[in-house]
Structures are given as structure tokens and as C-alpha cells.
Amino acid sequence: MSAVDHPAATEALRPPPPPRGWPRERVIGYILVFLWALAFVGLVAYLVSAWKPDMFWRYAPGYLSGVWVTIKLVAISVMIGALLSVPIAYGRMSRNPIIATFAYAYVYFFRGTPLLAQAFLVYYGFGSFRPQLDAIGLWSFFRDAFNCALFAFSLNTAAYQAEILRGAIQSVPKGQWEGAESLGIPRLLTLRKIIFPQALIVALRPYGNELILMVKGSAIVAIITVYDLMGVTRLTYSRTFDFQAYLWAAIIYLLIVETLRHAVDWVEERITRHLRR
């Protein structure tokens, strides 16, 4: 309190302000910021000078549909992955060694191999089983590149989400389970009303990161001929040989990822209000 009453006293106790002037760090920092600024100005100048209205109107609708395909692919596969991740996370935490080993093998396989290889395995590899797939009527599903990508992505993100879910549930102290049990609350209700709300706070950031990784990872579907944002970009580049095709894609991807990142920050801020002091 006395500090507020006597501003002069705090003035005397405060350490001296750091010396201004030009130490080496500041010189390097200013040079780097200047270089970034130069790069941005160069980028804008290039995009303005390379602006061709007819080209824009010809390819902009393609980019829009590409963004839509990307969003659709990520949204659907993350949702299917979320559903699949529940039994897998359950299996990872199971005391039954067979179920636990199986779930561990699943997670290890999908986290240990590249998403691109998994997509190739589904898109090209499943073609080897055409007669069998035809027999059970699934061939029409796997003939489409988008469906193959959706299939591979769902299985892949399920493995990652299962680990997030498991980590979050195990981060809730055991006493919470015991407390609920001593109150006679059924296990499923405990999970839903007591464990999940606490686990969600822990899981939110990893879930957000997984979503961002999926948006970025979805670019690889361009290689298996899906016309997502990256696929449209490649198509545009192969037709025009104009490098700005890639620069526009970079800008759009950065916008999507930054929006998602800030949205996750905002949600985290919201749901941890009660923890703030």
C-alpha cells in the first residue's frame, strides 16, 4: 500500500533503465526486421505487378473450390477420426493385453509412417484388390481419389487423436474417479460429467494442433490427384507457369492456419476462465 502512497519511494528503488544505444543484438534485429519488411514489400509489389485480371477471373473460382475441398476433407476426416479414436483410446488404456497390444500397434503404425505413404497405400494399393472390393461393393468408393484420401486421413488422425484423448483422460487425477465412486456415481456418468470436462481443458490445445496439422497435411492429397487447394495450385502452375500461383496458395494456407490458431487461443481463454486468479 505504501508504494502507492509514495510514488517517489518506488522511483528510487527501481533499477536503472537498460541502456539504449546500439548493442550488437539490436543492430542484427533491426537488419532482420528490415529484411522481412523488404520481403513483404517485394511480395506485394510482385503480386501487384503480376496482376492479370483475366487470369484472376479464370482461376479464382478454382482456388475457391480448392479451399472448399480442403476444408471438407479435413472436417470430415477429423470428425470420423474423433469417433474412431474413442475405442482406440479405450483399447490403449485397457488392461486386457491383447486389446492393448492391438491398439498400440494401430497407433504405432499410423504415427510411425508418413501420411503420404498411407495415402498411396490406399489409393494405388487398394487397386490390387479390385475383384475382392468389387465383390463387396466397395470398389466404387475406393475408385475416387477423394474417398481414398478421406479413408487414409480418418485412420491416421484417429491414431493421433486417440493418443491425445488417452493423455487427457490420464491427466485427470485418480482421486476424481475415486471421489465419484464413493458418491455412488455410475462410471459412464463419471466419465461424462466429471472426467471429460477436466480432460477437455488439457486436450484442447493438442486437438487444435492436430487440426492445424491436418490442414497442412491435407496438401499431400494433391499428389494423388485430388483438387484441393494444393491440387488446384499445381494445376494452375502447370497451365500458366506463373509462380504467383504458389504464392497465393501460401497466403491462403497461412490465413487458414492463423485463423485456426487464434480461434483455439480464444476458446482456451474462454473455457479456462474459472482457473484464472
Binding site: 497442412k216 497435411g217 499431400i220
Partner: peptide, 11 residues
């Protein structure tokens, strides 16, 4: 960290 790895590679 915001750009897809594949796009960085192409860039």
C-alpha cells in the same frame, strides 16, 4: 509453421 510442408518444398 503455418505453411504446409509440401508447399514450402514447392516454393
Amino acid at each position: 509453421r503455418g505453411l504446409p510442408e509440401l508447399l514450402t518444398l514447392f516454393l
